[in-house]
Design a protein around this nucleic acid. Structure first.
Lengths: 311, 311
DNA sequence: CTATGTTCACAACTGTTGGTTGTGGCTGGA
DNA sequence: TCCAGCCACAACCAACAGTTGTGAACATAG
């Protein structure tokens, strides 16, 4: 199906005749006639009844019309999403099911009129470069890992400290615990495939391992969280870490246990990053929203790497 | 923008390379390359970064992808709306803001998974023909006007008796009344442009006029309900009838009064009509929904034309 | 470092398509 | 009955989208 034909259909339906639609679209009446005929041939139904006084919609045409309008609306939005200048607010998150995703959903619920696009970049370095180039407007990341301080033109504010939980299968030694201490985790195998050295999240887990003498295995190919959950569910000796706000796909994770970690509770520090000079109005709205909805987390009993600025 | 190009873009994004997308789409790799290049030229941004191992999305490409998927979904639904066979339930209503429209909204809220298309046909004769031809699945109309009994293969059930209200401007003689009797309306000018003789709604108002000696003027061109409301609001000597459930566009109707009519209350009888043999599963769901949500109206003190079967 | 395989892009060619102009048929109103 | 207005069909032409053939860039294995 051709969007030009759909546009022509809508114009003709609005005008009530092909001639006027042709003028509006700056083509000849014959071109409109051909476009409509082609659309009708593709759909297999008649859309107009032609009369000597114009063309009026058939019942099929009437049913098709709102769908055609919707199609043009969506096409318009799709084009707008990559239009330089006034485009939707573009935000980078670390994972589609993570805490930042939840924050953006909350923002969308509070401001459904604001157009949003969510992307997932590789690490904070990529994100900062994208922010500085204007390719994205904001990013949810942990700052600032050693050796890569934030440039001066990038601003940031901590928006969420997300406690880590232990995720185990039903047969795991700790599966029955209401909570586990970090000390208890020493000696257990914690599996987190997909950790890429050099990223800010790898730095976080490196520090966690170094400070408490944990064993985190990043070995093996990362087949995605579904495969990870399946393996953890079936393997008594394996567990993994997962943010408290991470939404799991439960049907595939049958029997999994989420166990809080204490003494101290490792928390992942999500900050919002943006460019000092970014004038996007929705960016200010997002910042205000996050500031207003931020839950006053108690830092007592929690742990973050030394390079994370205390709140 | 070309939907084929969008389809190609999504296929390439999913595959991660042009070659595989080309196989999937049954074209050559070069064709995919050209389509993507054309799409990028139209949008004015790069969507992929080409590598020796395939093609991966740029940030713009990532932002565009969900919009592209949505576009294909909507296109799919648009085509489905006119597909013979298993298409959305297609229902005729008498006016987009009338009571039947409200009933369909309620049905959609209760069953959001059911695809619906709403059309507005001219009168019950057209609607019955459309039902018998299979062009629509159901219709909300008043039955059965004199001289046109329902054919045997059309079934119907009364679903709503909608009280008529008087609509006046703030300066109208009856504007201050909490309620008016039908007898009080005699002598007042009631203006209802757009009534077409021969339709079932014209028959309804004809009977109303004949029975109570009212004055209904159907003169003048019908410029739509907005213009009607504007005129009524500004003209002290004019009033009009409107169904109790009709949703008005209030900004344009400043100062309008809706006044209940009593002794008796004229009610417009909405019935659902459908073909005896229509196998559409959603039709049964609609009938069940309407039966379950029907408000038990009290017929006492109301009036309908003699040709309307009592409930 | 080279050989090889894989990927995408460019060039040349071709059939199809979508546009235009010209024309004719149909229909409603003067 | 004629005219005006509208749409469809035919012929023509330019632009486009597809194909084949080929080359450049890069990753990987030897």
């Amino acid at each position: 199906m051709d969007l030009d034909a759909v546009r022509t259909f809508v114009a003709a339906a609005d005008a009530g005749q092909f001639q006027e639609a042709a003028v509006e679209l700056a083509v000849t009446q014959q071109a409109v006639s051909k476009r409509i005929a082609a659309l009708e041939r593709n759909l297999g139904v008649r859309l107009f009844t032609r009369t000597a006084r114009g063309a009026e919609l058939t019942i099929d045409g009437q049913a098709f019309l709102p769908h055609a309008r919707e199609l043009l609306r969506v096409a318009e939005r799709a084009v707008a999403s990559v239009r330089t200048g006034h485009r939707p607010l573009r935000v980078d998150i670390i994972a589609s099911r993570g805490a930042a995703s939840g924050l953006m959903r909350g923002f969308h619920r509070a401001h459904p009129e604001i157009e949003l696009d969510v992307v997932m970049l590789f690490d904070i370095e990529t994100a900062v470069a994208a922010i500085r180039s204007g390719a994205i407007d904001a990013s949810f990341r942990a700052v600032a890992a050693p050796g890569r301080p934030l440039p001066e033109d990038i601003e940031s504010v901590r928006v969420l400290d997300e406690p880590l939980q232990l995720l185990t299968g039903p047969a795991h030694a700790l599966a029955g615990a209401r909570a586990v201490t970090v000390a208890q985790l020493a000696g257990h195998r914690i599996w987190m495939p997909g950790i890429v050295p050099g990223t800010e999240w790898a730095a976080y887990y490196d520090d966690l391992v170094a400070e408490f003498g944990l064993t985190i295995e990043a070995t093996g190919p990362n087949f995605g969280s579904d495969a990870l959950l399946d393996t953890v569910a079936d393997t008594p000796a394996l567990a993994t870490f997962m943010g408290e706000h991470t939404r799991l796909v439960w049907p595939a994770a049958h029997g999994l246990r989420r166990i809080p970690v204490t003494d101290p509770t490792p928390v992942y520090p999500h900050s919002l990053l943006w460019h000092r000079d970014n004038p996007h109005p929705a960016l200010a709205t997002l910042r205000a929203h996050l500031a207003a909805t931020a839950t006053g987390h108690d830092a007592a009993g929690t742990w973050t790497p030394g390079w994370v600025r205390p709140r």
